[in-house]
Simulated scan of single mutants.
Amino acid sequence: MKPALEHFFDSMGAYLANPAPASLEQLYAEHPGWAAPSSRVSLYGDFVRGHVRGALEKLFPLVRSAVGPDAWRLLVEDYTRTRPARHHEVNRLGEGFASFLADTLPTRGLAPFIPALARFEWTDFAVFASQVELPEQVAALTPNPTLVVLEQSFRLCAYVRARGAGAPPEPGEELALVWRHPESLASYYLEATPHALLVLKMAVEGLSAAEVSAATGMPEADILDAVTRLSRDGLVLAPRG
């Protein structure tokens, strides 16, 4: 038998996922003697569902716009029912939304890029809110420790940059880099270009511009320019001085 407190939270989660009057009656029936006023419990349920709805709208504005208001309302209702709100931090309520969309995509008639777009939007927030501390100084070129690499089968970077305007994202393999800028603390993203990957390789392997130039034939000045530009954007951290 489950401990009483665990059973209470399980049954409360079931009520929050399905706020019909019968669910409230079932909640009280499972806990005889519980004397909390039903009007207050109902109001609490409305608050929790409102928090979930508000968090999803804030975290996934492009998904919401792409699917339209009617489909969005049904998605939020089904997500609330199948993924009860249990985390104390409101924004974390959206953590499972991308996987929920991927699991239910075949039955909803949504565009196939929607789960990938949700994953992108969640990653953008998670990087912004990351607790990873950035060093104030580095001794050598260093990858930004908040960097997340997303492998996706749609060209989402351009779509996100356009804020969902225009045509849907085109199918195609894309490597997206998402990180938090060390000074502005804003999240940045970039489709992984050859220059970006080269500079990251330099940072990871400790290569100098002269060594890369000798190995690739690229002008050293071009390599240094890429390092300067991408360190200014925060993708890599460069020594000061």
Score class of each variant (00 low, 15 high):
Pro37Asn: 07
Ser38Ala: 15
Ser39Arg: 15
Arg40Thr: 09
Ser42Ala: 15
Ser42His: 12
Asp46Ile: 00
Phe47Val: 14
Phe47Trp: 10
Val48Trp: 01
Arg49Glu: 01
Arg49Cys: 02
Arg49Val: 07
Gly50Pro: 05
His51Ala: 11
Ala55Pro: 00
Leu56Lys: 14
Leu56His: 13
Leu56Asp: 07
Glu57Ser: 09
Leu59Gln: 11
Phe60Trp: 06
Pro61Gln: 10
Leu62Asp: 02
Leu62Tyr: 05
Val63Lys: 08
Ser65Met: 13
Ala66Phe: 06
Ala66Asn: 08
Val67Thr: 13
Pro69Ala: 12
Pro69Tyr: 06
Asp70Ile: 04
Asp70Phe: 02
Leu74His: 15
Leu75Asp: 04
Leu75Ile: 12
Leu75Asn: 06
Leu75Trp: 06
Leu75Ala: 10
Glu77Leu: 10
Asp78Met: 08
Asp78Trp: 10
Thr80Lys: 11
Arg81Ile: 09
Pro84Val: 13
Ala85Trp: 06
Ala85Tyr: 07
Arg86Pro: 02
His87Gln: 14
His87Pro: 02
His87Gly: 11
His88Gln: 10
His88Phe: 12
Val90Leu: 13
Asn91Glu: 12
Leu93Gly: 02
Leu93Thr: 02
Gly94Tyr: 07
Gly96Ser: 11
Phe97Pro: 09
Ser99Gly: 00
Phe100Val: 09
Phe100Leu: 06
Leu101Cys: 06
Leu101Lys: 10
Ala102Cys: 02
Pro106Trp: 01
Pro106Val: 04
Thr107Pro: 00
Arg108His: 08
Arg108Thr: 06
Gly109Arg: 09
Gly109Ser: 07
Leu110Pro: 03
Pro112Arg: 09
Phe113His: 09
Phe113Met: 07
